[in-house]
Design a protein around this nucleic acid. Structure first.
Length: 358
DNA sequence: TCTGGGGTCCTAGGACCC
DNA sequence: TCTGGGGTCCTAGGACCC
């Protein structure tokens, strides 16, 4: 029996939540992201409402460009606590519909409804019911894809947006993907798209026809994935639990700087903040790293693995500050600094051990 | 057009060990 | 003396996703 997987993707999530909270913004172009500062702002668009997208504005676009495309749009800063609470409410609804849910991000989730629907007809009704409840309870729309695996369900949810519902019958996975551009395949970004274009591979269907050994030769491990994905194959199961593998904090300065004291101060605050997070989770890190981006956008990282795991702010601060030193010799101004904690491990293993003994 | 922030995974070279 | 091979860890960088 094929599985039945849904992929639920909220439409223009941040912007939609803002429009819900500010009814006077409904029907207007809303851009959530950095402050445009009359076109001089630094940063990017997080989410643009569908009205704003009509002007050509989209996620990850420099905010200065978005401003030029639509001066009169409503530009607003992200309100993450608000989005997190809306997200939590949506996820609660999804969990009522299925016991098997994988939350992928703040606004996306997979549901395995193999036990709730016997065919795609029933799956479509199930998905429609989910959309209804999210709309009624949260006044938000989403797009849903239904298919026999995660990859195709995800591609399907993106097929008709916003407020879409796309069902791919088992057996039709390959045919559904075939006409789409390769860029629509999860894992194919700008770089891979360019390489494929050189090879005159433009659609997923064309990619599906390329011999797998050729793809492995060209892309390594990624080549095997590309072959299977393009053929609509994805056996992966939902991952219902999540453990963070790293903690990152980054800051792009308002103005590029040579003020080392300022840089160190920021690093100190980030280190403290990240350690607080570790301590809340009763966990530790063993690898401590920094990131520096210069004014010309050249970016470097440095990291160090410690002999002992730690969540002590002073230890982390001393390590990050030490890693920064060589970069202060550089003549260029610094645009961004960041820290990263990795090799995370729970400090308190008692529960795990008990489970092992049982 | 001048490029955020929080993440994951992969690659590749070198150190080190057996 | 002119040079193996496998495994693991560490480090730096990069592609990609939301």
């Amino acid at each position: 029996m094929p599985r039945i997987i849904l992929h639920v993707d909220m439409d223009a999530f941040f912007a939609s939540v803002e429009q819900r909270e500010h009814p006077e913004w409904k029907g207007l172009p809303v851009v959530v992201g950095a402050d445009p500062k009359l076109g001089k702002g630094r940063g990017v668009v997080a989410t643009a409402s569908y009205e704003a997208r009509k002007f050509g504005i989209h996620s990850a676009m420099p905010i200065s460009r978005a401003y030029k495309l639509c001066t009169t749009a409503i530009f607003t800063r992200p309100n993450f606590p608000l989005y997190l609470s809306a997200s939590g409410a949506v996820m609660d609804i999804l969990r009522k519909f299925s016991g098997k849910v994988e939350q992928v991000s703040i606004d996306e989730a997979y549901l395995d409804i193999s036990n709730k629907a016997s065919d795609m007809n029933e799956a479509a009704k199930f998905a429609a019911a989910i959309k209804n409840e999210i709309l009624e309870k949260e006044q938000l729309t989403c797009s849903i894809g239904a298919a026999s695996n995660k990859l195709v369900a995800k591609t399907a949810s993106d097929f008709r947006k916003p407020d879409g519902l796309t069902v791919v019958e088992p057996g039709n996975e390959k045919a559904f993907l075939a006409p789409l551009p390769v860029r629509k395949l999860l894992g194919v970004g700008p770089k891979t798209e360019m390489v494929l274009e050189e090879l005159e591979i433009n659609t997923i269907g064309e990619l599906a026809g390329v011999p797998v050994d050729l793809l492995i030769q060209q892309f390594g491990k990624m080549g095997l994935y590309l072959h299977e994905a393009a053929n609509g194959i994805d056996e992966s199961d939902l991952e219902e639990t999540y453990e963070a593998k790293s903690i990152n904090r980054n800051l792009t300065f308002e103005h590029d700087t040579r003020d080392n004291t300022l840089v160190l101060q920021v690093i100190e605050e980030m280190s403290r903040d990240a350690c607080e997070l570790l301590q809340e989770d009763k966990s530790t890190c063993r690898t401590v790293g920094i990131k520096v981006r210069f004014e010309d956008f050249e970016t470097h990282t440095k990291e160090k693995t410690l002999a002992e795991p730690t969540n002590d702010p002073t230890t982390v601060q001393n390590t990050t500050k030490g890693l920064m030193q060589p970069f202060f010799a550089d003549k260029r101004k610094i645009r961004l600094v960041g820290i990263r904690l990795a090799h995370l491990q729970p400090q308190d293993n008692r529960q795990k051990r008990v489970q092992e003994y049982i």
